[in-house]
């Protein structure tokens, strides 16, 4: 089961493994996307994955979600595989459903009764601050609002593991920062382990307690950096010199990882 999102409980719970890759290889035809990739994610952790384009970041999430099969190695997840939720880069909302009915979708597919799923979806939209937009259609929502609906939908089945594939990549910087804070806030209220793919170092530093820097190709772990700012983190963290230093350090590590490719 997921644990509360405070630092202490993350420390305590870090014994059990939420997700693990062991010597995972993934090839598409002749091209190796991942080679002998191993990573363990502890329950309650927030792990970000950054690296050059094409280093297999997204493939890692897709492997965990069962959207693609590994060519070799072993992937494990605590509990059932269905306990993870995948947040896509574009919100992937169904345009013919209102925000509310989009959030209801996973519950509906799981056979939850109409009244129960409606009530749950309303609670979730309230959680992401969209109580006023429940009856709006996706085309009436801004990019940030769409992503909030997508997050609410992701949380509908109370997943223990959230797989987030550059969810805020298409948003403007202001909205992105705000959604970063909201994501951490959501995790306080409905705890989950997060595996987060991003191109943004500052986003990764703000959110994560571990950053996996990858090099490609084939994708390998170049270095893992621990971020030990205490949770809950607020936007004021972005003004701290320690934060700047960390962003600078990880940026340097990312550049080194990219040079390995070149």
């Amino acid at each position: 089961m997921p644990v509360a999102g405070s630092v202490r409980s993350i420390m305590v719970s870090s014994h059990h493994i939420a997700a693990a890759f062991r010597d995972v290889t993934k090839r598409f035809g002749e091209t190796a996307i991942l080679e002998d990739f191993s990573l363990e994610v502890a329950g309650g952790e927030f792990v970000s994955i950054i690296g050059p384009s094409g280093c297999g970041k997204t493939t890692l999430l897709r492997l965990l979600a069962g959207l693609t099969e590994p060519s070799g190695g072993e992937i494990t997840q605590e509990g059932q595989a269905g306990r993870s939720a995948y947040i896509f880069q574009d919100a992937t909302l169904l345009p013919w459903r209102t925000a509310l009915r989009n959030v209801e979708l996973p519950l509906q597919l799981a056979g939850v009764s109409r009244d129960e799923r409606r009530q749950r979806a309303e609670e979730l939209l309230k959680l992401v601050g969209l109580s006023d937009a429940t009856l709006k259609y996706p085309r009436q929502l801004s990019g940030g609002m769409k992503m909030r609906v997508s997050l609410a939908r992701g949380l509908a089945l109370q997943p223990s593991l959230m797989l987030l594939d550059e969810p805020f990549g298409a948003l403007d910087a202001m909205t992105r920062n705000r959604l970063n804070e909201e994501l951490l806030d959501l995790r306080e209220r409905q705890p989950f382990t997060a595996l987060f793919v991003t191109h943004s170092v500052s986003e990764a530093v703000f959110l994560s307690n571990r950053i996996v820097v990858m090099s490609g190709q084939p994708g390998r772990i170049a270095v893992v950096e621990t971020i030990d700012f205490p949770y809950p983190r607020k936007s004021a963290l972005r003004e701290q010199p320690e934060y700047y230093e960390k962003v600078a350090k990880v940026t340097g590590l990312l550049h080194q990882a990219e040079e390995v490719v070149a």
Binding site: A65, L67, G82, S84, Y86, F88, T92, L94, L109, A110
Partner: peptide, 11 residues
């Protein structure tokens, strides 16, 4: 993308 969404929910 929508088909993959349904796949992740084992529809």
């Amino acid at each position: 993308g929508m088909r993959e969404l349904f796949e992740t929910y084992h529809a």
